[in-house]
Write a protein that binds this DNA or RNA. Structure first.
Length: 272
DNA sequence: AGCGGAACCTGTCGGC
DNA sequence: TGCCGACAGGTTCCGC
């Protein structure tokens, strides 16, 4: 489900509602998200802690807790957080309930059970977080950095953009959209991108992500915001999911090709 | 280094 | 109607 703009949308909404509130207890209905950590260890670590500000790195949500520690969450394909009034019991696909001291519930819901939740004392202890590359909305993500980073890799641009150890946050939808906007082929080797093309790519990454955040992300099948409203960026998608439709720039049919066992959508005429 | 394939798990949709 | 395969916004691990 979520790529950077969807996670950012969730983070902003949680930040409006959660800081200052306290977890009374944690109820786990299905423990896949916890990995090797025993349910009781996870639940006991969180009980009694308060929520501070929530941050994001790439697609990870980082909940600062009071007086110490972090809840580190990754939504993967279908994870979502929902704030709800008390319920009689878990609704379908609800995996974890964080009972708040004021009676409301912070619900972690995840149809496919790929999402992850972890409590850590220090962010350095969070599995895989340290391997993440630059967040494309951070200040140090410059077109110069991008140009130099591209130069060292033979990977096709689409793979390169989705590699979270290089840039953290782009997934299948936004990688396709960014490449269309920069008129670069998903098959182009990273090291074959010329400096002015790298500048174009950099501008496209920033522009697409910022617009998507302004539209509260993309809802294709089931992305939901914390308040259960939907994103609107799907109305602005130029190529993703539009196989066979005319390219908005030249009218040629949008193509779908497999790359890394994912679908890539692009215009073979505009993108080279 | 890169790439193909499989795995994690559940659901939907289209074709026959 | 019913079964079956393809596909889904993500990531990791393994082997070549």
């Amino acid at each position: 489900m979520p790529e950077l703009p969807e996670v950012e949308t969730v983070v902003r909404e949680l930040n409006r509602a959660l800081p200052g509130r306290r977890i009374r207890r944690v109820e786990v209905f299905r423990r896949d998200a916890l990995g090797d950590v025993p349910t009781a260890v996870f639940a006991d670590a969180l009980a009694g802690r308060g929520f501070g500000p929530i941050a994001r790195h790439g697609k990870f949500l980082l909940f600062r807790l009071d007086p110490s520690g972090f809840l580190v969450a990754h939504l993967r394909m279908t994870g979502k957080f929902i704030l709800s009034d008390p319920l009689p019991g878990p609704q379908p696909h609800q995996r974890v309930w964080f009972h708040l001291a004021d009676g409301q519930l912070l619900i972690f819901q995840d149809l496919r059970c790929f999402g992850t939740l972890a409590y850590v004392e220090r962010l350095e202890d969070a599995p895989n977080l340290a391997r993440l590359g630059l967040d494309p909305l951070a200040k140090d993500f410059t077109s110069r950095w991008l140009g130099e980073a591209l130069a060292g890799s033979h990977a096709p641009l689409k793979h390169w953009l989705m590699d979270q150890t290089r840039i953290a946050g782009l997934g299948n939808i936004y990688a396709c959209e960014v490449l269309f906007r920069s008129a670069l082929s998903p098959k182009r080797r990273a090291c074959r991108v010329r400096p002015e093309e790298a500048r174009r790519l950099h501008r496209a990454i920033r522009a697409v992500l910022k617009l998507a955040i302004r539209k509260n992300g993309t809802t294709i099948s089931d992305f939901q915001r914390v308040d259960e409203k939907f994103g609107e960026f799907q109305r602005y998608l130029k190529v993703y999911g539009r196989e066979g439709e005319p390219c908005p720039a030249c009218g040629a049919a949008i193509r779908r090709i497999p790359q890394q066992q994912r679908s890539t959508f692009y215009c073979a005429k505009c993108q080279s």
